[in-house]
Nucleic acid binder design. Structure first.
Lengths: 220, 220
DNA sequence: CGCGTGTTTGATAGCAATCAAGTTCTGTGG
DNA sequence: CCACAGAACTTGATTGCTATCAAACACGCG
């Protein structure tokens, strides 16, 4: 799983533990939890001031409408912090994409243990990242075509993996619910991008970027 | 303008100034600025740690793609705080919808003047609201039909005005760019909702909710 | 009153959803 | 190791919603 972004578990642990900045906060004071594929990490209506950080595996946040339509809010990879979006009442739930390890900490407890400032820096940095990603997501959903959505998504995944190849930790349905498309349309666009020699999928969960400029023209 | 949400400027001033909570922070320590209709409050690439609060009038945040497509991130009404979305680099710009008055404060200066805790409470509350609204917006853009989008929007506007009537501070193009639709489709859906006796538009900027349950069934 | 901007309405086209099979992949048990 | 069942993915045919193109209509303002 961690191989998907090109880092070993050891590297990530080292990074999470580094105390130069506040990014190791949860590694020091959080509780380590293990979730199985599909398991719920928190529910749509539950309320608590918990902060989460991915160690290995991946997480999605999602919201289900009464008629079954679903929107995925974001995908989180190792080192990403999530669970911040639940202010007064939170509206999205979080689920494990595959088997994964998550660090969990209570904000109030972290304040006591690590100091108010460190927690604030930690949280506000995570919030800034979340807001920024969410803005990109808004533009994607509102103003891009199906082809652009998929291109943009693959570009984003490749960038997170810091390379031209990446392993997708989610299936087509999750991609569709993130992009505001149907599973069939996602599949067709992937086929189309492959036919255009822009990306290559050895398997449906792995891909390589073959023509990055073209991909950027579509999705950047 | 302030009449749009059913509060006089005096009421708003009183509210903004109240020192029981941190909501009067900018009223005490911020600078009062006046912007004309359409004027830019901050640009897409500019970077500064300024916080803004609407006193009267309204504000939109928007992002423009190179080919002219535009996505509006949010609309802000009197007492709303904005400008928080610009973490590392901010991607949206903010413009005045009509002539409006805005309070502006530098975060660093506010920390000195009002204390770290007060500023943090102020900011984190505003961030929570922003995140929550943004999540609703994501669902709206990704998984709702044109009719549902417009219904949801009108419901939201009526709720913000705390009543069954409201004055829209934005035109059809702004609505369209917020909802991820074209101006023609927005217009058609408004006509349709009117024909169904669900809402009524005396003028294109004013409306009354006639059948709230029906509107909620569509947009809730 | 006439112009310009903003909105509505109409006709048509096109993209993505839906409905419907196939095909590949994955995990399990023989 | 192979055979099989179920799930996930892909492909095809068709429909339908929303965009696009085009024109008429309202409203505010000089």
């Amino acid at each position: 799983m961690t191989a998907a972004i090109g880092l070993s578990d050891n590297h990530i642990q080292a990074f999470l533990r580094s105390s130069q900045d506040s990014s190791g906060l949860l590694a020091q004071y959080g509780v380590r939890m293990v979730y199985a594929r599909g398991e719920e990490i928190y529910a749509q209506e539950e309320d608590a001031d918990l902060i989460y950080q991915v160690v290995s595996g991946g997480v999605r946040t999602s919201r289900l409408m009464s008629d079954g339509r679903r929107q995925i809010g974001a995908f989180y990879y190792p080192s990403d912090v999530f669970g911040l979006e639940r202010g007064v009442e939170h509206r999205f739930s979080a689920e494990a994409l595959g088997d994964c390890v998550i660090l969990v900490g209570k904000k109030a407890a972290l304040n006591l243990a690590a100091g108010h400032d460190a927690v604030e820096r930690f949280v506000s940095q995570a919030v800034a990242q979340d807001l920024s990603r969410m803005q990109d997501h808004l533009l994607l959903l509102g103003r891009r075509t199906a082809c652009e959505k998929v291109a943009s998504f693959l570009l984003d995944m490749a960038d997170r993996a810091k390379g031209n190849t990446a392993e997708l930790i989610m299936g087509r349905q999750d991609m569709a619910d993130y992009l505001g498309l149907t599973i069939e349309t996602v599949s067709r666009m992937v086929t189309q991008l492959q036919a255009a020699m822009i990306v290559e999928f050895p398997t449906c969960r792995q891909f390589a970027v073959r023509n990055r400029p073209a991909l950027q023209r579509l999705g950047g």
